[in-house]
Design a protein around this nucleic acid. Sequence first.
RNA 1: GGCGGGGUAGCUCAGUAGGUCAGAGCGCACGACUCAUAAUCGUGAGGUCGCGGGUUCGAUCCCCGCCCCCGCUACCA
Length: 600
Amino acid sequence: MAHILSAVAWPYANGPRHLGHVAGFGVPSDVFSRYMRMAGHEVLMVSGTDEHGTPILIQADKEGTTARELADRNNRIIVEELAALGCSYDLFTRTTTANHYAVAQELFRQVHANGYMVERTTRGAISPSTGRTLPDRYIEGTCPYCGYAEARGDQCDSCGNQLDPTELIEPRSRINGETPQFVETQHFFLDLPALADALAAWLDEREASGTWRPNVIRFSRNILQDIKPRAMTRDIDWGIPVPLEGWEDQPTKRLYVWFDAVIGYLSASIEWARRLGEPERWREWWNDPEALSYYFMGKDNITFHSQIWPAELLGYAGRGERGGEPGAYGDLTLPTEVVSSEFLTMEGKQFSSSRGVVIYLRDVLERYQVDALRYFICAAGPENSDSDFTWREFVSRTNGELVAGWGNLVNRTASMIAKSFGEIPAPGERTDVDEALLATVRAGFDTVGGLIARHRQRQAVGEAMRVVGEVNKYVTDTAPFKLKGEDERERLATVLHTAAQAVWCCNTLLAPFLPHSANAVHRTLGGDGDLMPMPRVVEVEDLDDGHPYPIITGEYSTTPPWAFTDVPVGAPVAKPTPIFTKLDDSVVEEELARLRGEDA
RNA sequence: GGCGGGGUAGCUCAGUAGGUCAGAGCGCACGACUCAUAAUCGUGAGGUCGCGGGUUCGAUCCCCGCCCCCGCUACCA
């Protein structure tokens, strides 16, 4: 048994999440966490909404509200949709808690004290009317190379040249059109070069473990090549104050949103322990060198998890070339594995809320079964390369695999049992066919479990479905529906018991992927209550400042073991109702019309 | 431009440290069966494994060149 930190990327609180988001981090992290709990490990799964940064501020301005109000609203939306998806967080919180502020400031202070946070004067663009940093992306103007009038400050979309915003002809703010001011400004830089050797040593060790996905480790090594100090503060009035004398009171200097967002993994762990009433409990996942940590995210986040976050941890511990010592949190463990997904596209195009190429999670959850979506993501998600979501494939996988394959197996098995016995029958003597099926099912636990542990969920779910296929074949071959004679009664009982036993176990194999329907199947076969625990949304108050907000949490100690368990002989089985809903082909056209903006 | 990923049956993809490696699922055709949401089971057709060279007894898998698609390129998160 190990302590496993399941660290899930923090969704940015600028609106509801779309399928690309949950395919990248939501579902994979939940499958992994649920499986690890079933396998007997002590899992701590944390995340929250990331609420600082320029985009939220701008959007709030646009809507005539405050950043805080906007964050409150979007936090609630995201909490509700992730809970509905069944993501079993121990704590899903947010970056605007007093606890998070304190933890982020503690890290900054110690990294600074250890000498890895250096002050520098830089030239940057600010908005003259607000004094806020104007990120390169928010400046546009005429490209000096090709004359394109709407080049962005970081890159020209027309000719592809990389730009410096000062090169733009007639630069203007994309936010309000004003001319940006290029000013000298003081910022703190994380001295990544001073931590580069330590980072490289850590990556060497991680690479040697052989478990990282190849593209992730390669990319991480790559960005280590020309590593430079990176600014960790911004001129902005929305964020965490810089906890140093002379800086604290400056209303326009704040920590860079990415500096604080990754600290959320630690602060959420601490908040979880505090809410539990055992405030030091988080240390089991963070101070024990044997503890394992897995970070789930989309590939656009790799830099922050395989470089910035480990650098912050190394700097905090004083493990760079300048030495130093750990702060109050002690020596914190670096990521065991950065598990990055690729991107999900949508009918061949990249998701884009602004261009309307988007399917929001909540819309899907409103119209379709949550496990149908989870199934699609597990079976066809962007695990090792980009993958495409199409409504046609969604319908075809749901109908062909979930409904006709798995759901129908449950249904035909339960129907026959209900009709012939009304309860799970006790088996008579088993034949070779029966034993062979049970052996196949038993072997499934090692195979499927091993694949999930290695983050090969597509193959894992495929393997589980292959076992389902074997059970369907068994039912067809043994043809219990033909065993009608009184002298065949015992054989019938044996066959139906074996089928029920196999379905019972397949349900366990599929439970990390399909937790909601696992509960339905469980009851169909006479099980008591829920098989898989579900997260719940709880209204809480900030532990330090009383601000109310919703969290996702749960009691997962009742998680069933990842093992062959006996189907309850004698448990009543009634005529079943189908677990999964078959989708009409018209869904495809309907949804495509919706995408085109026609109301269906 | 740089870095990375990918181009394998109609579709979605797996695969080989080079020699039963030409595969799976879906779709299609045919057959079996009827317990089940017309679900299930079996059989079959189908591909010069992006293009051109090279190394080798032998390459889809290694090397070189080329074409095409996609992503990232670090102060948006």
